[in-house]
Design a protein around this nucleic acid. Structure first.
Lengths: 255, 255
DNA sequence: GTATGTGAACGCTTTCACAGCT
DNA sequence: AGCTGTGAAAGCGTTCACATAC
């Protein structure tokens, strides 16, 4: 059974912490906006505000890249844009394949911000033979049967999975076998991949559930003893002694 | 100026760490799958594998909820499903409004996993008058002018923003003014919100850039001195002394 | 015997606060 | 005087390893 390693354990590239890497795109976006407004330099305070972080964090982050600022002045916008782009590997372009051209896959294919910075939709792949040849966002959809060849021919190393959950692992395996080493997974599935393959996931349902947790907390802040009907709770198999916190299972359960 | 607090600083609910909250949906999904297969109990090891984490982490996570397992046996699946659902606030249903019905908004409206667990698409809102009345996923799109009323009438406390980046902050402000206290933002924009409002963001572009970073690292692992043409780097305004690591700007720049 | 629940150790991330340049 | 760059401290999150309960 494949155990599947997701995200980075602690391999740490050339010393840039993962948390910092995750913020570089944020800084880059803010810097690009400044660049378009022809702003020549920016302070850590200003840039941090624009990126939605605090300035100490930003300075610490930049310190991992090198000393790219000027004391008493700030950072040169163009110069930083280049340095961060290079660090993120955006000075080359990355052909990307999207597998699963349903509503979401099509939406991503049409997404403008995709091509904007280094990424290029090189192929759209779907298992439905009826879709083969249909153009989506100006690109003809190709059939899964040719996945291997499509990946190889286009030198794709980043794959995006937007299939139904049931197909995700299989598609993932085929992508990896074809040479893909980075996967962005939109399917609500835990993917197993061999060592050396990176997986990041985007999961609408999980995000909503996290929001609901906090939302519930807010609502329950004043009204402690609720008067709402508590959904019929299932009984426990082993009715042993529990010691959960207040919100435990009701002592009486519905017949 | 609104400073805008994103995510949770460190308020920590009733003691459940944020990292744990973020994993509860994962456990819930794995447990639901087991439940559908009528599996009565599961060990921390098995469940951890299914959820893609290690068992120590899972047990630690569950310990924050209470002692819901049985030593020497494992966890009762149904019981845990109920406890986690309750903890996440999924025993009540959450009406959600989606603002910005373009490709992505429509895709989300059609997304099945949405309604599945406690969430219900209560309203679709768009600024384009031509879209008003058009049904998307069986729900008529309403115009932004009525946003306030729509939110109030439906008791929406969770909003999803899928507008173009330029409109996101304005839509966010209006949602918050109308009573929304949780926002899921798909627009590539840093949102400013007042204290007490939670924002989570989903950003395709950021995820791809993080993957590109690691991808670049993999590629450069053996080939140190690259032969690729390095995109013309911009010159620095202040040509002062830098001490960045190896990947510095080329000493000679293109004429 | 077996698997949970948890203090303690460890490592990563953030924040502080100030030395070091410009 | 002003702002960056960075050690040191504090805060979180993960992992270990074993006492505890079944």
């Amino acid at each position: 059974m494949a155990t599947g390693r997701t995200h980075r354990p602690a391999t740490r590239s050339r010393g840039i912490p993962e948390a910092t890497v995750a913020r570089l795109p944020l800084y880059l976006r803010a810097l690009t906006a400044l660049s378009e407004r022809s702003v020549p330099t920016v302070s850590s305070e200003e840039l941090a505000t624009a990126a939605g972080v605090n300035s100490a964090k930003l300075r610490k982050d930049f310190s991992y890249l090198g000393s790219y600022g000027t004391r008493g002045v700030g950072y040169d916008v163009e110069y930083l844009v280049y340095q961060i782009s290079r660090e993120l590997g955006l000075t080359q372009d990355w052909p990307v394949a999207i597998v699963g051209i349903g509503n979401l896959g099509a939406a991503l294919a049409n997404y403008g911000g995709f091509a904007s910075r280094g990424f290029r939709v090189a192929a759209l792949i779907d298992a439905d033979p009826a879709m083969a040849g249909t153009p989506v966002a100006g690109i003809a959809v190709q059939h899964t049967d040719d996945l291997d060849r499509i990946i190889s021919d286009n030198g794709v190393s980043i794959g995006v999975i937007t299939t139904p959950p049931g197909a995700a692992q299989q598609v993932c395996d085929r992508l990896v076998a074809a040479g893909v080493t980075s996967i962005l997974n939109f399917a609500p599935t835990v993917l197993s991949v061999p060592e050396g393959v990176d997986v990041r996931k985007v999961d609408l349902s999980i995000e909503l559930q996290i929001l609901a947790f906090h939302e519930q907390r807010k609502a329950g802040e004043d009204a402690s003893a609720d008067g709402e009907d508590p959904e019929a709770p299932p009984m426990r198999a082993t009715p042993a002694s529990r010691k959960g916190p207040d919100g435990d299972m009701p002592a009486v359960m519905p017949a």
